[in-house]
Design a protein around this nucleic acid. Structure first.
Length: 511
RNA sequence: GUCAGUGUAGCUCAGCUGGUUAGAGCACAGCAUUCAUAACGCUGAGGUCGAGAGUUCAAGUCUCUCCACUGACACCA
């Protein structure tokens, strides 16, 4: 069975920002975890390219919308490459595959009787490009943001009959495995229990969008179009687009990872659309938090937006991944603080983990002829460290399953600290001076090499580069695709060659 | 405005159904040490748990009031 995991399809109004980077890194870690577990994973990401805003942005730049989209898409792909994001599908909503699918899907929903004519009425601000929630009866209301008069709009649109799915959606959002983290579930339940209203899925004056199949005077509203990207992404190409084959292509999705701001679309509208089309529902929707920077909201007006590309110029990708995944509880909001960033990288990655490997490998090579020591007898202390390690493995695996990356990282650090303490307690550098203790020394070193090896594997989903470096430095010629056989004690071959160690990460200087 | 959530050491946060001297990591101080990336290890200092009142033998943990911040309250993604 395929595990399908998705990021949102990012809106290409602007270049990628730290938020989408964060989401994508988290998804990548999840995908890597499942792959190591031996699962067949389909990791979907992509972009949402339609809508009036994009049309307008392109106009401002004096290029056509497609050119604009192509440009931004290039930036996304480049960033994901720099971050070594191992996605399987990248879906563009302007692709012909997607268009074909949207038409197919629309027809099916229409056959189900869930599309009707309606009127979209309301006070509309041209500046905001949105309808304001202001009573019909108000006279000459003014937009609070733009201080301009609002227009009364009364537009014939197609509506999706969301209200037909009130009970089913209610049951879905109350199921405590669907919306994660659970703290966000209540909001959605409140929303649903206030009564679902039908929503419009078409627009009359937006050209940069997919045309409604049976009414070329209108185009489909971006959300209706964008959500369908999760499905169109599954098809290998634009041939044989039919709903029945989705079952074999990886649907239903195992997990949609999204920002908390778009939870409602994914937990309410999207499932209803799927129900209407007779398709299965995704298993989980995870709404993560937002990032601030040095305690402040990031925004253009403040001029404090942190560009992921700039970050990558200064720091390597694993440092960024480690910071985002280890310091911020996945699901909660987080604050990006550069001094903390530097502290964490230096302490966790360089001092605790990197130095552990380095000191152990050096000892082993120095005293055992550049090899992993031969174990001559059982070390009575072995069980202490090996049992500790095995407990950590259990905790880490469970934490990965819960998408609790913070706990994953914390537990791995604990293991590394434990190994450092074990070395200090046993002092192999003292024992080695007395030749009759050599067999003790070999066991001690072997135990810590083993621990380091397991640390390397456990780190792979979070920081693949550093995890791999650790594993290579222990003599592996290649990184195994799955980890279940590796996550047991005693895999390192005594007597095998140990390459010369080098720092898995360099320390960062504080400015 | 209505509803929900948050407010615990300098910083980021744990503290389940109320119960001995309130915890962790980072930062800080001291000790120790050289196998190692001036790293590791050990010890310590640090909090009237947002404010006030109440229930209780006992409250960070329950109730009420207040203060501050955040989010949701339908078509901006």
């Amino acid at each position: 069975m395929t595990l399908t995991i998705s990021t949102p399809l990012y809106y290409v109004n602007d270049k990628p920002h730290l938020g989408s980077t964060y989401t994508t890194i988290a998804c990548d870690a999840i995908a890597r975890y499942y792959r190591l577990e031996g699962e067949r994973v389909l990791f979907i990401t992509g972009v949402d390219e339609h809508g009036q805003k994009i049309q307008q942005t392109a106009q401002l730049k004096n290029i056509n919308p497609k050119e604009h989209c192509d440009l931004v898409v290039t930036q996304y792909l480049e960033l994901w490459k720099l971050l070594d994001i191992k996605f399987d599908r990248f879906i563009r909503t302007t692709s012909s595959k997607h268009k074909k699918f949207v038409e197919t899907f629309y027809k099916k929903v229409k056959e189900s009787g869930d599309i009707k004519q309606g009127k979209q009425q309301g006070w509309y601000c041209v500046g905001c490009e949105e309808y304001k929630d202001i009573p019909k009866t108000s006279e000459a209301p003014i937009c609070a943001i733009h201080q301009k008069k609002l227009e009364w709009r009364d537009e014939d649109n197609l509506f999706f009959c969301l209200s037909n799915y009130q009970e089913q959606i209610m049951a879905l959002v109350q199921d405590n495995s669907f919306i994660r983290p659970s703290t966000r579930r209540n909001e959605i339940i409140n929303f649903v229990s206030s009564g679902l209203r039908d929503f419009s899925i078409s627009r009359q004056n937006v050209d940069w969008a997919i045309t409604v199949p049976d009414d070329n005077s209108q185009t489909l509203y971006v959300w209706f179009d964008a959500l369908l990207g999760y499905l169109s992404a599954l098809y290998p190409d634009e041939n044989n687009i039919d709903l029945a084959s989705l079952d074999n292509l990886g649907w239903p999705a195992h997990l949609h990872v999204i920002g908390k701001d778009i939870l409602r679309f994914h937990a309410v509208y999207w499932p209803a659309m799927l129900l209407s089309a007779g398709l299965k529902l995704p298993k989980q929707v995870f709404g993560h938090g937002f990032l601030t920077r040095e305690g402040q909201k990031m925004g253009k007006s403040l001029g404090n937006v942190l560009d992921p590309k700039d970050l990558l110029m200064k720091y390597d990708r694993d440092s960024i991944r480690w910071y985002l995944l280890s310091d911020i509880k996945f699901g909660s909001d987080g604050d990006f603080q550069e001094s903390r960033f530097i502290d964490l990288i230096n302490n966790d990655l360089a001092n605790t983990i990197g130095n552990l490997l380095n000191r152990t490998s050096t000892m082993s090579r120095k005293w055992f002829n550049n090899k992993i020591p031969l174990i001559e007898k059982d070390n009575p202390d072995e069980s202490i460290i090996s049992e500790y390690t095995s407990n950590i493995i259990t905790i880490v695996k469970q934490a990965y399953l819960n998408y609790d990356f913070k706990l994953v990282c914390e537990s791995i650090i604990k293991l590394a600290s434990q190994a450092n303490t074990y070395l200090n307690d046993n002092q192999p550098w003292t024992k080695v001076k007395q030749s009759d203790n050599l067999s003790d020394v070999s066991s001690i070193i072997y135990n810590v090499l083993e621990t380091s090896r397991i640390i390397g594997f456990l780190l792979l989903p979070i920081i693949p580069d550093i995890g791999s470096k650790i594993i290579y430095q222990l003599g592996y010629k290649e990184i195994p695709n799955t980890w279940n056989e590796e996550l047991s004690w005693g895999v390192l071959q005594p007597g095998a060659n140990l390459p010369k160690p080098y720092p898995v990460i360099n320390k960062l200087e504080r400015e």
